[in-house]
Design a protein around this nucleic acid. Sequence first.
DNA 1: GATGAATGAGGATTCATTCAT
DNA 2: CATGAATGAATCCTCATTCAT
Lengths: 233, 233, 233, 233
Amino acid sequence: MPLIKRFCDKLPADAHKRERRKGARPGELLDAALDLFVEKGFAATRVEEVAARAGVSKGTLFLYFQSKEELFKAVVCENISGHLKGWNDEFESFEGSSADMLGYCMNSWWDRLGATRASGINKLMVSEAKNFPAIAAFYQQEVIRPGHALIRRVLQRGMDRGEFRKMDLDYAVYSVIAPMTFLILAKHSMGVCMPDDLGLDQKKYIRTQLNTILYGLSSSPVNLGQGPEKVRA
Amino acid sequence: MPLIKRFCDKLPADAHKRERRKGARPGELLDAALDLFVEKGFAATRVEEVAARAGVSKGTLFLYFQSKEELFKAVVCENISGHLKGWNDEFESFEGSSADMLGYCMNSWWDRLGATRASGINKLMVSEAKNFPAIAAFYQQEVIRPGHALIRRVLQRGMDRGEFRKMDLDYAVYSVIAPMTFLILAKHSMGVCMPDDLGLDQKKYIRTQLNTILYGLSSSPVNLGQGPEKVRA
Amino acid sequence: MPLIKRFCDKLPADAHKRERRKGARPGELLDAALDLFVEKGFAATRVEEVAARAGVSKGTLFLYFQSKEELFKAVVCENISGHLKGWNDEFESFEGSSADMLGYCMNSWWDRLGATRASGINKLMVSEAKNFPAIAAFYQQEVIRPGHALIRRVLQRGMDRGEFRKMDLDYAVYSVIAPMTFLILAKHSMGVCMPDDLGLDQKKYIRTQLNTILYGLSSSPVNLGQGPEKVRA
Amino acid sequence: MPLIKRFCDKLPADAHKRERRKGARPGELLDAALDLFVEKGFAATRVEEVAARAGVSKGTLFLYFQSKEELFKAVVCENISGHLKGWNDEFESFEGSSADMLGYCMNSWWDRLGATRASGINKLMVSEAKNFPAIAAFYQQEVIRPGHALIRRVLQRGMDRGEFRKMDLDYAVYSVIAPMTFLILAKHSMGVCMPDDLGLDQKKYIRTQLNTILYGLSSSPVNLGQGPEKVRA
DNA sequence: GATGAATGAGGATTCATTCAT
DNA sequence: CATGAATGAATCCTCATTCAT
């Protein structure tokens, strides 16, 4: 390697390529690690596999990550970067109805996160939360809480504008979160939770869930005044 | 708690320990294994731990299960026995409204399955489906499919009686399944997906979700005729 | 033990049966152990297998033999009992030619030992001598040495009577021992040393070897006077 | 002795240990494994012991051999390479008498194989044939059969040239093979079959056996015409 | 920086041996 | 006496981690 380095001294252009390569390594490793952790779980994934998938040797992985656990942390951190920040701004200036806003919210969430590899993080956290409480807390802080807040804002807006009925937002948020989370988990769990994975049109799934969330399944508008809150004892 | 209990078992009636236990061993091991597999995942669980939690030695586990993997299979099989069969019969003779029926359905599902240790199987399958495709297929066959069918029947009944609006049942079922599954996973994932685990009243969660499912969040009964189906592209 | 014993006090007849049974057990175990040790080696044989083949439980084996190693010792001891004593007497009074005597010797050795299960001991000692030096020494003392002595006597008799040429008996004995040992080992080693095991007529093998031993393969009686001792440098 | 040698290796030139060794590892492991398998048998040999004797750690062994069994296979294959091929050619051009040829054959066999560590394979196959039928078949194919063919050729040559009497070669070959095999096994079995191991001069043993094979033990050239074939029934 | 050979702690599994019944 | 459930030391093998090149 000192050989190559000396060689590079004479070829600055090549050196540059090398630099870029070096910069690219951690990213490739994180990508590979994300895929494998999501697919097989943390414990069942071998670092050698991660390295191989990233096209480097086992030793190289440890140049960038102190340990397998650090790699895990990095994978989680890397994939929860602030998509939400941008969203908050977008929503600030949203003009349409709250129903449209919710629809926009769910669809863009799917397009920007759900449909990407980053969505695997969700499954990963479900699977490994117990083994990595610190990471789970971090995830909670960085993803869950802001996500909940975002949904809350939309629902609150709807309530404020009289578009949505009064509700306990602490629980109502899950009407939005649960279907989206479910879709992610189904996607990453080999369709364990779907009769057959490929048969599901994800966009249609979202549209249908949105519909239910907004209007429910009932055919008639029952007691919306006092509220359905008292249904069931 | 089970740990303490088992510890105590050894102190008083040590006399007929052998005889009393012989038959119970496999069950105790399955119990311990379920807990640990759910808590830490398959790969991260050591058989010795399972044995210890069941109050036996490492070797004893292998007296009853050929391998760790066989133990896993047994855990899954043991905990997905036909709870659903009984339900089908109950529903056959259900007399009330379909809304009530759905509420009864969700609540009794929680009481009989969701709230029990068996619910851990759900998280287990989400986490390990990719590592155990055969088991996942089995689970799909034995649990997912019948579960879907059950929900379908309820929704179909509502449609037939004019209580529910027309809908594509292939997708509508998830309006029921997703919130329930989400609750299970949240319960078993240290509340990764909840601001704080204990702050959630599960019965209230179910009640709220049921309400949303039935009546939606909107304050006014919008275009139920042509259908909200066209909300957003 | 005390229980049964007391029981037997009242039923002498039954006690007798029990006694015989008890007496039979060790023998059955030794038989099974011999077979398995010969077939698979000491280390690769499981005591449970031995017990199972003898039709008793694993625990029972340990009633009769303190340990697996003790069982091994017993197997060896049991199967090297004094066949040779009787032979010595027979030979004392043998009347025929020394060639006939050698033939009789080899054939009866095969009939009484080589063809029986006890011959497995030979293979066993070859395989395990290094692991059980004490047993090997014992075997050497009890079997090898007397066996050599026996062959020596026959050859000595031949020399004394002028039937056999002068030879160094320390080495000549192997001309008899080697072919016999080879036959045993071939028999117990799946015919590793024979093109195909079953194709070998053992009686014919012995006859042929005897012939060679007595008369050699050469077609002409060369320099028997000075002796072929100087063949090759 | 190899143990001591290897110990010393570590003291002086530790510098390029890695590089120097890399290529040598498998060979060193095979050497160590051969010794230990021959000495103690397959089952009784621990892989860690093999590794230690080769001067490496347990894990390193598995870098080169998938499993203990693969190591065994490799040991056998490695040590039965075609020594016989060269022999066939030598014999093609042998000029002397067939008696000399046989003597040359036996002596060079001893020098090139019998006296070397490779001879341990013979004992190994006798001990483990039943546990490794596939390897035994391979050994049979690669060693036994060609070896028999080689001896056959020599005897056939003797018969063709009128030097040896007519004989059934299927059986006569063992007159040569048995004594040689016996010598090998005695060597590797702690002299179980010899009064005392060291007291045996192996070269003299071979000379003596050759003499017997050629001329027999009888003092007079008896009935060579009709043949000794009818000696005893 | 990059490699991959080497390590050895750790985990699954086996099996001789014990012992309560 | 006989059983076989239970044990845990011993062994094979894996894999995260190190480090000389």
